[in-house]
Simulated assay, not measured.
Amino acid sequence: MEGSTSRGRRVKHQIRKALNATEQCDLLAGHGVKFEICTKEQAEKFLQNNTYFFKIKAFDNNFYRDKDGNYSNLDFAYLQDLSTIDFEFRALILRMTGDIEHALRIRFNNLISRVNEDGYQVVRDYEYDQKEIYRKRSLQEFDPNSDYRNSVYTEGMIDKYLGQKPIWLFWETCSLNSLINCYNSFLQHRKFQDITYPLLYGVRLLRNAASHHNCLFIPPSSTINNTRILDNLMPILLSQRSRIREDTLQLIKSDPLIHDFSCVILSHINLVMSTGMRHYIVSSAETFLERIQRHSEWYQNPKSGCTHLVNQFDAIKLILSEYISFIKKLDINELSDEQQKLIHQPERKPVRHGPRLPSPRTRKRQKRGKQH
């Protein structure tokens, strides 16, 4: 035990200093990482040209280690493969979430036009709501101008229109988080219901993780707040009953990556009207499905200890396959009545609930009748 502790200290000391690619490979080899499928020379080149040690080492958390911290079935090629899959998955997510953000602005604009809304009042309502939220949560005072992100590409329009604050200036300069909050404010004030709104926070979280180059295929360290509407909509998308389908529906409730990716898929289905955008994602999804399955047998080996990673891969493959099938049916108008629910567009909330109440005049007449 003492030897193991002193060894751990030596490893930490080594990591504190900047290691070159050869030293990095030696450090991994000291923990049982093999260089058989991928040679040390190839691994060194990959670490020098394609990634860096801290990032690629994050993926080793998927693999089984013994009490001394050594791996029993891990070749560097596995880490290299996971790193590439993770990169390509992030690229797919960034394209899909970019489509969603653009489509959300289009929907927002169409709803404003539909109710003949004042684009300036929409911003005033949003700013009032934000001030109230900040006040109730005892946060620092909300700064309305903080939503207008100034850069060399936006400073001209900001200088020209900031004093008036039309909604279209807000759209061109705000963050995705502010866009979602403003959209929610509009829905509440104008009594609209949109099934995509609860999904947008999952979209934002995964978009931010992908844009910041966070490793996605690592074991989750926290639980999630489940999005109820996923429980209603994902079974519609995943129409073919199977064990993988049931496992996927369970993962959606517990795994942040699968939960947020489901939010992205459903939002893209509902929001993105452009057939060109849809077809691009279908093509990209088909390419990614081929890539994720290329070395699937590496992770399915029981000695690897990659049970959760395999479950994540199975869930993503199923979700993407069903997305591709859905879009192809949508193109030829062959969606079932149940599948039509996934493309349901925003509608006004009912003004009244329950039976219509009698008018004041009718109530007076009824009262006089009872007295006589």
Rank of each mutant, 00 (worst) to 15 (best):
Thr5Gly: 14
Ser6Thr: 14
Lys12Glu: 08
Ala18Tyr: 05
Leu19Arg: 05
Asn20Glu: 07
Asn20Phe: 10
Asn20Gln: 07
Ala21Ile: 11
Gln24Ser: 15
Asp26Gly: 08
Leu27Tyr: 04
Ala29Leu: 02
Gly30Ala: 11
Lys34Gln: 11
Phe46Asp: 01
Asn50Val: 12
Thr51Phe: 02
Lys55Gly: 04
Asp68Lys: 11
Leu74Cys: 06
Asp81Phe: 05
Leu82Ser: 13
Ile85Phe: 04
Asp86Asn: 13
Phe89Met: 07
Phe89Cys: 10
Ala91Cys: 13
Ile93Glu: 00
Ile100Cys: 07
His102Asp: 13
His102Pro: 13
Arg107Tyr: 11
Phe108Gln: 09
Ile112His: 11
Ser113Gly: 11
Arg114Gly: 15
Val115Leu: 01
Gly119Pro: 00
Gly119Ala: 08
Val122Ala: 12
Glu127Tyr: 07
Lys136Gln: 12
Lys136Gly: 09
Phe142Ile: 04
Asp147Glu: 11
Tyr148Gly: 12
Tyr148Ala: 07
Thr154His: 06
Ile158Asp: 09
Gly163Asp: 09
Trp168His: 15
Phe170Asn: 10
Glu172Thr: 07
Leu176Pro: 11
Ser178Cys: 12
Leu179Met: 13
Lys191Ile: 15
Tyr201Gln: 13
Gly202Ala: 12
Arg204Asn: 15
Arg204Lys: 14
Ala209Val: 10
Ala210Pro: 01
His213Glu: 10
Cys215Gln: 12
Ile218Gly: 05
Pro220Glu: 05
Ser222Pro: 06
Ile224Phe: 06
Asn225Ser: 04
Leu233Ser: 03
Met234Thr: 06
Met234Trp: 06
Ile236Thr: 15
Ile236Lys: 12
Leu237Val: 02
Gln240Thr: 15
Gln240Asn: 14
Arg243Met: 01
Leu249Asn: 01
Asp255Lys: 04
Pro256Leu: 03
Ile258Cys: 04
Ser262Trp: 03
Cys263Gly: 12
Ile265Ser: 04
Ile269Glu: 03
Asn270Arg: 03
Val272Leu: 05
Met273Gln: 14
Val282Arg: 06
Ser284Lys: 10
Leu289Val: 15
Glu297Ser: 03
Pro302Asn: 10
Lys303Met: 11
Thr307Val: 15
His308Ile: 03
Val310Pro: 06
Asn311Phe: 08
Leu318Ser: 00
Leu320Gly: 01
Ser321Trp: 06
Ser321Ile: 06
Ser321Arg: 11
Ser321Lys: 04
Lys328Arg: 02
Asp331Trp: 00
Asp331Ile: 01
Glu334His: 03
Leu335Tyr: 01
Ser336Asp: 00
Asp337Cys: 00
Lys341Thr: 01
Pro350Asn: 01
Leu357Trp: 00
Leu357Gln: 06
Leu357Ala: 06
Leu357Ile: 04
Ser359Gly: 05
Lys370Cys: 06
Lys370Val: 12
